[in-house]
Nucleic acid binder design. Structure first.
Lengths: 234, 234
DNA sequence: AAGCCTTTGTGAACGCACGCACAAAGTCGG
DNA sequence: CCGACTTTGTGCGTGCGTTCACAAAGGCTT
C-alpha cells in the first residue's frame, strides 16, 4: 500500500548524490556537537565533511532553508533536520543473515545502534554457529527466517552470506516483506520493483585502488605478448 | 571517418565511472568462464553485470577494440585485458592495520587473494591481539609499522582502526610510502596529493537505505513540533 | 562469391551534478 | 537606527555520464 503524500512546500525530489552525502554531514555535525560547538558556517562544515562549501549549501537547501544568513547553521537543529530527512528519528529493525567473520563484525559494529538501527535478528544456516550469542543476541537457524522477519517487523536486511547462497536468501527475505537490502555478497542480486539493494564489495574497492596505483607506477606493464604467455602457462 | 589519433589505439584517460565498473564485469566474466562459456555478447554480459549494454560497450571501448562484430567478446581474452588494465596481473602487497572484528573479517576474506592481493602484514596496537595468528599471518605490534611497510614494499594499506586513531595511523603509513588507502574508519582522512583514499562506511549505506525505506512508507513522519520535544527531553 | 544477419563501436542528444559568483538577507557595532 | 560586514541560497555555465540509435564490420549460409 503505497500512499503518495501530497506535494507540499518542501521539495521531495532530493538528488541521490545529495542523499549519499547527508550521512557524512551528519557525522561531522555530531563531532562538532560533542565539542560543544553551537553554530557552524557552511565553510567550516564543508571542510569537516571534505566537500565544497557551495555543494554543501545546495545540498542543505534541498531540505529547506535552515540556516541564518550572516551566522550559519545551528548544529543541533541541523542534526535533527538531517536525521529526520534520512528517517533516523525512528528506529529500524535490521536482520543480519550470515554470521561468518564479516557478519559478526557487522553485528558488533557500534555505528549502527547509535543511528537508530537496532539489530533484531541474527540468522545463519551453519549448525555450528546457530545458538551462539553475539552482542546479546542469539543466532537463530535460517529456517526461522520468515517467522522472525514477520514477527519483528523487519524491513531492512543485511546479507553477509556466501555468493552461492545470496540470491536464494535474498528471495526469501523479500518474500517475507523486506524492502531494503544491504548486500555484501559478491553477486548482482535480482529483486522485484520497489525493493532497494545497495552493494558493498570489499574487493572492488581494492581493485579500484590498484588501478590508480598502477598508473602512478607508469601505466599497464606489458603489451600484447603477455597474454599469450599467460594462457600458455595454464 | 573516425581515424584513431596518433596517441595509439589505447586511450589512457579512462573515466572514473568506468573504472569502478570494470571489477564488476571481471567478476561476471569469471563466473561465465567457470561455466565454460567461450564467447559472450555485450547484451549477455551486461545482463550478468546488471548494467545497460550500451554502457558496457562504451566502457570496454575505452580499453581498446577487443570484440568481434557479429560474435561478441572472447571471455578469456577480455578477462585478461580488464585484469591488465586494473593492474591485477601483478601482485599487490597489502597491510591491514587494526584487527578487531572487521579487520579479522578482512584478513580472512578470500576475495582478495584470488585477485592478486596478498595480505603481507597485520598490525595492531592492542597487546592482547599482537601475536595472534590469523590466516597464517602473525599480528605485529604497530610500533613496527614503518619497518614492515618498507621491508615488504607495501603501497596499499587497509585501515580498520577506531575513528580516533585513524588520522594518526594514516599519517604514519603515508610517511612510510603507502600511496593507496582503503579506509573503514568513519572519519574524513586528510592526505597529501598523490595519495588515493577510498572510504567504505557501513553505517552510511544503511542510512541511505533508511531514507528510501522511509519514502516508501510515506515521507518523513512529523513536522516542526517534534524537534522541540526532542531537544526538550535531553 | 554474394547477400543476409548479428553485434560491435560510436556519434549525438540529453540530463544530472558540480562549482562559481553574486544578490538577498540577516547580524552586529556604533 | 543605520551602515558595514558576514554568510546563506541559488541562477547559470560547464563538464561528465548515460542512453539511444545506427552505420560499419565481421561471420555464416547458400
Amino acid at each position: 500500500m503505497t500512499r503518495r503524500s501530497t506535494l507540499g512546500a518542501r521539495n521531495r525530489g532530493i538528488p541521490e548524490a545529495t542523499v549519499a552525502r547527508l550521512p557524512v554531514y551528519l557525522r561531522a555535525l555530531h563531532t562538532l556537537a560533542e565539542r560543544g560547538v553551537v553554530t557552524v558556517s557552511s565553510e567550516e562544515l564543508a571542510a569537516a565533511a571534505g566537500v565544497n562549501s557551495a555543494k554543501l549549501r545546495k545540498d542543505l537547501s534541498h531540505l529547506g532553508s535552515y540556516g541564518t544568513r550572516g551566522v550559519g547553521y545551528e548544529v543541533q537543529y541541523l542534526v535533527y533536520q538531517i536525521s529526520r530527512e534520512l528517517g533516523l528519528t525512528q528506529d529500524w529493525s535490521v536482520a543480519i543473515v550470515g554470521l561468518g567473520n564479516l557478519g559478526r563484525a557487522l553485528a558488533g559494529y557500534g555505528g549502527f545502534a547509535s543511528r537508530g538501527f537496532r539489530m533484531s535478528a541474527l540468522l545463519d544456516a551453519d549448525p555450528a554457529i546457530v545458538g551462539d550469542r553475539i552482542n546479546g543476541l542469539t543466532v537463530e537457524h535460517i529456517d526461522k527466517l520468515e517467522q522472525v522477519i514477520t514477527d519483528c517487523g523487519i524491513s531492512i536486511a543485511v546479507l553477509a552470506v556466501p555468493a552461492s547462497a545470496a540470491q536464494a536468501v535474498c528471495d526469501r527475505v523479500v518474500a517475507s516483506g523486506v524492502t531494503s537490502i544491504l548486500n555484501f555478497a559478491p553477486v548482482v542480486l535480482t529483486v522485484p520493483d520497489g525493493v532497494d539493494v545497495r552493494k558493498v564489495d570489499l574487493s572492488i574497492e581494492l581493485q579500484i585502488l590498484a588501478f590508480h596505483e598502477q598508473r602512478k607506477a607508469g601505466g599497464p606493464g606489458g603489451v600484447e605478448q603477455e597474454y599469450l604467455e599467460a594462457v600458455d602457462g595454464s
